[in-house]
Nucleic acid binder design. Sequence first.
RNA 1: GGCGCUAUCGUCUAGGGGUUAGGACGUGAGAUUCUCAAUCUUAAAACCCGGGUUCGAUUCCCGGUAGCGCUACCA
Length: 511
Amino acid sequence: MESDSIRVRFAPSPTGLLHVGNARTALYNWLFARHIGGKFVLRIEDLDLDRSKTSFEKQLIQDLIWLGLNWDEGPNENDLSEAGDVGPYRQSRRMDLYATHTAQLLAEGKAYRCFCTPEELEEERQQAIADGRPQVYGGRCRVMNKFDIKENLLRGKTYSVRLQIPDRTIRFHDMIRGQLEFAPETVSDPILVRSAHGGTAGASPGVPVYNYVVTIDDALMGITHVIRGDDHISNTPKQVAIYEAFGWKVPEFIHLSTILGPDSERLSKRHGATSMSGFREMGYLPEALVNYLALLGWSTEHGEAEILSPDQLVKAFTLEGITNNPAIFDFEKLNSLNRHYLKLATPARLAALCWDYFGGLLPEKDEVPDAVLVWFFHMIAMFVPSVNRLGEIPAKAAFIFHMDANLTRADKENESVLALESAQRVLTELAARVRSKPGPLSAADFTQWMTEIKNSTGISGNELYDPVRIALSGTSSGPEFDTLIPVLEQGAALKIGIPGVGQRLAAFVSS
RNA sequence: GGCGCUAUCGUCUAGGGGUUAGGACGUGAGAUUCUCAAUCUUAAAACCCGGGUUCGAUUCCCGGUAGCGCUACCA
């Protein structure tokens, strides 16, 4: 197959947020298309008008863009227009197409109307379970004479359209699982159209169902490789039968294994936020998520390279590298990758991403003086090395904006440090020196004074630094003083309510 | 119940008829630092079970077990 005729698609339903499983499916489709020089199609499966929402569709598109997964054909970003020659790319706009195909199958005798009621089908199903047989439709309506059909139609009886599948084993090829087979007695005649009815008071052509439309769309859109979740394996024989009924070429299938939660159950909301927008809000970088998702069920040729940028992933990606065992989602590994990309990101980018976390503590975004912006860069950069994700920064940075001496003392460990006589000496000496200097102090001033205090008092090590750290930040751990002192002092100079070093020390020195 | 998919360190995975079974995350220890983080060094940690094939099986075949999926006139 020529690589430029290879076409893949991502076909989400706009009935909810884009979560990890679907995001990985989209990613693998995208990586494969980009690696091989094929086309990546985005199709919106909004067949179910009750559950589909345009707000979800918009969010979906935004999430794909955020991940950097651009598509060649499909809905455009900003309006309802579409790009590509084989559209529409929203199923809700393809109803006529489906109806034409149904009429064709009916006319050719490959499909038939099934007037069985839900109750009858349920009864049949229960009987099959009781007998230990596969639950398949018995095919009662396969042979119904024209007069009965006519009469049922006239009476407005509800029916579905079923495809009559051949009485032989259905086989198809899955590129990572090999040849898959389904015996005829395990596959029902698939329903193509549901809830149709005839009658004089306005007949209804019914609504085409998922297995049917997905097949028509994939075929008509020229999809050559169907990469999707393995929950569709059992649907595939029905779809293959539909391809064959129309005489269409059956594509290659690649079924991706399920992503599980730590309890080895299917990953869901129960396991925490697993939607792309959730990850974005928590402060994960898209390249970290892309890298992690790529590794969840795929590996490079020798399995050793693990840190891969989107470009490197495109270069390295092959279908052969996909594994077929279900993977458990591991937040720790995502975190480690995110920390890696956080270190690589520019301060300006990180500051922009963090700004909204500090709503209320900072001036409005459009009227921010440059000095505040520059200070904010430094403040954020100071905390980045110690977080897994940007969303952890506000809690860590809270002391920058507000210090409560009583709250700090209420902590037992803090108090035991502060209560030492040596601690008071250090703080008193340091406070005196800070008062003696008019302007903002620098890291160099601080270092020099601490050395002086060490020499004059003989206090050193933790005993020297711990009380200072607690007085400045409220905890005994945090950024190193070389970066902390300037952030505090420059922040205080901004006059936006940030206490400076002198003010902080004063609250801990008994006068 | 039926049908299907899967099975290597705690987790993601590489590998493959004879290997010291490799890497990454996490974990333990050490180094460094005023603390935490980062960084560096280092350690522990795996072939689901039973048969068969074979000189030899973790690898191939069969069965079992377990996990997951599907089992709709949802998508």
